[in-house]
Design a protein around this nucleic acid. Sequence first.
DNA 1: CGCCATTATGTAAGCGCTTACATTTTGCGA
DNA 2: TCGCAAAATGTAAGCGCTTACATAATGGCG
Lengths: 349, 349
Amino acid sequence: MDSKSSVPGDARRRSQPTIDDVADAAGVSTATISRTLNEPHRVSDKTRARVMATVERLGYQPNFSAKALAANKSGTVGAIIPTMDNAIFARGLQAFQEQLGDDGYTLLVASSSYQPDLEAQQVRNLIARGVDALLLIGHDRHPDIYQMLQSRSLPFVNAWTFNPEHDVASVGFDNRAAMRVLTKEILANGHRSLGVISAPRQHNDRARERVEGVLEATKSAGLSAGDVPILEVNYSIGNGAEAFAELMQGSQPPTAVICGNDVLAVGALGKAKQLGLSVPGDVSITGFDDIELAQISSPPLTTVHVPHRKMGRQAAKLLVKLIEGTDTPLQFELPTDIVSRETLGKAPG
Amino acid sequence: MDSKSSVPGDARRRSQPTIDDVADAAGVSTATISRTLNEPHRVSDKTRARVMATVERLGYQPNFSAKALAANKSGTVGAIIPTMDNAIFARGLQAFQEQLGDDGYTLLVASSSYQPDLEAQQVRNLIARGVDALLLIGHDRHPDIYQMLQSRSLPFVNAWTFNPEHDVASVGFDNRAAMRVLTKEILANGHRSLGVISAPRQHNDRARERVEGVLEATKSAGLSAGDVPILEVNYSIGNGAEAFAELMQGSQPPTAVICGNDVLAVGALGKAKQLGLSVPGDVSITGFDDIELAQISSPPLTTVHVPHRKMGRQAAKLLVKLIEGTDTPLQFELPTDIVSRETLGKAPG
DNA sequence: CGCCATTATGTAAGCGCTTACATTTTGCGA
DNA sequence: TCGCAAAATGTAAGCGCTTACATAATGGCG
């Protein structure tokens, strides 16, 4: 019963079999195992069959850390989103992940809670964890981040926004244009007194662009910027409601309230009902994103439809191409369209 | 200008500094660097300060794969959820991730799309990727999975459900009891003709338990099981609507329709409106989960509130304790409560 | 001041893979 | 049958860390 723990083939505590175990069992070298698994064509049919059988029999699973270390790539893609707790990101991320899975990559998620510093930290974190590429939301972010990505030549794409001025890979839509179109539609309905409920614009180019879109439209319709009150609140139904109340309590309340997203709009809608205001009889209200909420609110919301799932999948595809060095265009603009339901009507009076 | 590429200290293509670089720069051994970073107290104040400064100066970030390989742990926790494209999982996952981040772990996500085989595959995948622990939804799954986890003694917790019969770590709520309580409430309102719209129960113990809850309540009220039609559809507003229509077209339509979740209920609600049925005047409709949809539907939904965020955080805490070997109870039952809004009323007639 | 228990640091052997490079086998034309 | 290019396989050096063990520095005490 003496036991020299260095005896080869020693019982290594019933842990995972390693490549060496497989090599021994199959009577080939580890190199052959590795090749069989990663470049099957470089191995003879006979050997491949034998190795595969052994792999199967032993239940061998390559150790990922080792693989990542040796090959200097992890098969892992990171995503840093503001929050999953918002249908639009959750949905896009789900699609992103599905596509990634199809391509053999795994998703590492972090969230920034809309805080630039936190985002920077998360980027560092994910890089240290060896992600092969990164999905980021929007263009705004700490310059350190870009530098960091640059210096490591780590592929990344900015999603949920599209702006050819930024010379980086991205897949998204033109927030400004979308909102401009919506606003024009509103103006075409005779509204001249508008109000905006936006997410905080600082550090959030999407929110900023949307407001810009509104402003461009109103300006070209001859309204001066000062005429359009803009409230900034964090995304939530409650905040939407409050902001709406505030907007309506002035001496000359807007006849149309443009919300930065559907969640805010639904809050506004609820508050309108509560205040005894009819929508769109007394006020029109619009949203952005076209999430489920928009369909089932009552009345259903007129909003801007954004192809979140498509965006997620497309971003994944692009990232994979960047990782693998496949030639590809770097920028994808996805179309949005306004979906007219029942909360936008003629201006009263 | 001659360049022997093997010269030590050679310019390794301006890549990340390694622990060796830091060691050289700080004039200590790599062991000391490692200790400074991982067990600061084991290093003298002077050395620690010098090392930290060097780390800072070089912008050193330890390579995760190497760390994981050497230490045999990855600081990464995997989660396999049916889909992120459902507010309840997204929300819970967000909370889960926040807590994980607080504890220094990172989240690796995969989704099973409600398919047992896919789930098994994802488990394998995440294990190979070296996760330190796993979050799983529900108790139902391929037995191979449990065996796999067992044999590697990989910590895991089953969430979104609580059932002391299963002897595994879990944090969740009693789906059956929650639904039983809701159903009793419905019966107390005089309803005797019920209908159920559920998610497919196969491979989904949560859906199954919920239906069981309904049945327990109806049975103890003297109704026979056959009296309660049960439709199974995948979660979606549209499916909820269709199922509702089907339920109502019989010769003796139910006066109360119990839905497996809010999404289904909202679909049913919409269809009721469309069919000219008043809710709860003609039919009562209930949901489950209490997501945002429930508040803003019209009329707002009577449903079961589930503390998704709390569940996510709690699951993360538990998992971390399991990983670190801290002593802890293994099962956490979270309370649910029924929130009475406006879709449940007295039985007509 | 010298001894010895502490405390701090260094040495070097892996962790489980990949992959240049070296060696052996195979297959085929002459 | 021989020679040789191509195909298959093997050898072994890392990848960047952690950590057991060895060694050196420190400091308290008689």
